[in-house]
Design a protein around this nucleic acid. Sequence first.
DNA 1: TTGTTGACTCCCG
DNA 2: CCGGGAGCCAACA
Length: 120
Amino acid sequence: MSELTEFQRRVLHVVRQIPEGRVATYGHIAHLAGSPRAARAVGSTLRNAIGAEDVPWHRVINAQGGISFKGDIARAETQRRLLQVEGLEFRARWTFELEVYEWTPEEAFWSVDWRDDELG
DNA sequence: TTGTTGACTCCCG
DNA sequence: CCGGGAGCCAACA
């Protein structure tokens, strides 16, 4: 059994709330976990979380709207496949329209998409 | 225990 | 638009 830090527990808690077919950036997760500058640590936390069934690690991507990987292309391929299965359409091999799929917990407070009416 | 590295991001030149 | 550096928190040697 491994010990998790407060930060890591918060990260996993937030990630578990990302809905299917939606994504959130490392930076956003870090922010929600209480350490806005710790985007990097979010990555290492998720790395250790691969395999944990209740943690949708693949729904966390970089600020440019793409899949991050250094060397481990196998993991990246898996992540891309999982996202595609959830309905996400890529515009390039590793990138997609972040504005279309990005999720923010704030929206959970709204049962409908109010933005269309708002802008008229 | 200390130093380095990493699924990152933001800020400057 | 691109490259460098700082900031953050863990993992690892």
